[in-house]
């Protein structure tokens, strides 16, 4: 009796701890998002009433995010960079999955560890090392041939390459995990029925991988969108959204328009993350 009572008390305490954790998890996000609806020039208490001005108003001083040119441009660049990183990293992730699940070559385990490494290299270091290499190549070519290669200077191409360099590890792991579950007999059956290797790949294997490829693509897009450390060193005049927001936070001080952007990003990335989870969960296994 006493035992079960103390067990119950323990379970209650445990549940309270879980609850406290999720409150802790939500608190800053709620704070960052909810001040977007406060009818005030500053993101702080007291609450001045509900407004959507920080999203839609088109005049200063309460310029809403959908009329703020610089924020919109940041959003646009972030989206372009995200799509490019996502497409590239899903492609290489897929070839990596086939390489490590199907391929047989010497030192496979060693190369597999090499594939993991970019995920544990600090982003700042990826950023500076790629910046250094690109500048060296560009300077060398300029000195020798007197020809300027623009895309090796900080800008969108370098940002995409920098993010791609570690996002590919994530996509490779997701797609590899799925390919490992694949039942070989399905391919054999298709081959026995007279399909060519390309046809088998296109109609049997790739459709099986599709949920993982979509989920990996979404995760790659999200990681690219929120990345700051690597991007910071590679960015040129086309600043993605996180950089634009950071500049504004540091220099101008914040108005609730940044809360509006935060709300937009929290909801947007939450929805995308939800889709990636659902796509993977509903995938038929085997």
């Amino acid at each position: 009796m006493a035992q079960s009572r103390s067990n119950k008390a323990f379970l209650l305490g445990y549940r309270l701890y879980i609850l406290a954790f999720f409150v802790f998890l939500a608190a800053p996000l709620v704070a960052a998002g909810s001040f977007a609806f406060n009818d005030s020039l500053f993101p702080s208490l007291p609450w001045q009433g509900f407004t959507l001005d920080w999203f839609f108003n088109d005049t200063e001083p309460k310029l809403g995010m959908f009329h703020d040119r610089r924020l919109l441009r940041g959003l646009y660049y972030s989206a372009i960079i995200g799509v490019m990183v996502s497409a590239l990293s899903v492609f290489v992730g897929t070839t990596n999955a086939f390489l490590f699940v199907r391929g047989n070559f010497p030192a496979k385990n060693f190369f597999y560890i090499i594939m993991i490494l970019p995920l544990v290299i600090p982003g700042v270091i990826l950023g500076i090392s790629i910046l250094v290499m690109a500048s060296n190549i560009a300077n060398g070519i300029e000195d020798r041939f007197n020809y300027e290669i623009d895309f090796l200077r900080p800008g969108i191409v370098l940002v995409v390459l920098g993010q791609f360099s570690f996002v590919t590890t994530i996509t490779s792991l997701v797609i590899t995990a799925r390919l490992k579950k694949f039942d070989y007999t399905m391919e054999e059956a298709a081959l026995n029925l007279g399909a060519s290797r390309i046809q088998v790949l296109r109609t049997v294997t790739l459709p099986f991988l599709r949920p993982a490829m979509i989920a990996a693509g979404i995760v790659a897009f999200l990681v690219s969108f929120e990345n700051f450390n690597t991007t910071l060193f590679l960015v040129g005049s086309e600043s993605p959204l996180t950089i634009t927001m950071f500049d504004r936070m540091a220099k101008v001080g914040s108005t609730p328009v940044l809360n509006a952007v935060s709300f937009f990003l929290i909801v947007g990335s939450g929805l995308l993350a939800l889709i990636s989870v659902v796509v993977q969960r509903n995938a038929p296994s085997d």
Binding site: L25, A26, A27, P28, L29, V30, A31, A32, V219, L222, V223, F225, E226, F228, T242, M245, F246, M249, S254, L258, N259, S262, L265, I266, S269, G270, L272, A273, L274, V277
Partner: peptide
């Protein structure tokens, strides 16, 4: 899983 990919910037801002 859902807040996993919210930017550090927004978390710190919060």
């Amino acid at each position: 899983l859902i807040p996993l990919w919210v930017s550090d910037l927004i978390r710190a801002f919060g």
